[in-house]
């Protein structure tokens, strides 16, 4: 059981890293010229881990993803962006997932919005200028779409896995 969980964490981290990498291909930089800002597709993994394994493991996966991602990118500035973005999303989603009325979509959208706020905060800190603030409204609007996408993907995922017992055997 413990080994299984650990393996699952490792796999999820790998998937999250792959998603982070995939994000580089979205031309977000065209609309928002701040290096380091990402859509937050890796939040799919956070959503999944949160529901499947709970806040603790989800937290570990997130931390591992941020650290390894920064190491792979060779860019410690990116660490601050992914940490602040990732953990803001994580905190908000943990809170929202406890509200009975919300579906995966609501939780994901809240997470995506928090991800945007966190990254803008990182941009403010690293650039030492308030200029990034001006992109927050755009980024929040974009996060409605990324959040919905994250919600959709994770809903499909859970639907597909509904008959699979992950932790058995």
């Amino acid at each position: 059981m413990r080994t299984k969980k650990l393996t699952a964490c490792g796999l999820l981290t790998a998937v999250a890293l792959a998603l982070s990498y995939l994000e580089n291909f979205f031309p977000l930089a065209l609309a928002i010229p701040i290096p380091g800002i990402k859509l937050g597709l890796a939040n799919i993994v956070t959503v999944f881990a949160l529901y499947a394994m709970g806040a603790g493991p989800a937290f570990l996966v997130l931390a591992a993803r941020c650290l390894l991602g920064a190491v792979f990118a060779g860019n410690m500035n990116a660490l601050l962006f992914s940490l602040l973005g990732g953990f803001s999303a994580m905190l908000v989603m943990t809170a929202l997932s406890r509200l009975r009325g919300l579906s995966l979509y609501g939780v994901s959208i809240g997470g995506a919005a928090a991800h945007s706020c966190g990254q803008i905060a990182a941009a403010l800190l690293t650039l030492g200028s308030t200029a990034p603030m001006y992109y927050l409204p755009v980024l929040l609007a974009v996060s409605l779409f990324t959040g919905s996408l994250t919600g959709l993907v994770s809903a499909c995922l859970f639907r597909g896995l509904v008959h699979v017992d992950l932790w058995k055997g």
């Binding site: 509200l99 009325g101 579906s103 995966l104 609501g106 939780v107 809903a155």
Partner: peptide
């Protein structure tokens, strides 16, 4: 989780 969008 709820898999379908909800009113909230």
């Amino acid at each position: 989780p709820k898999l379908r969008p909800a009113a909230w």
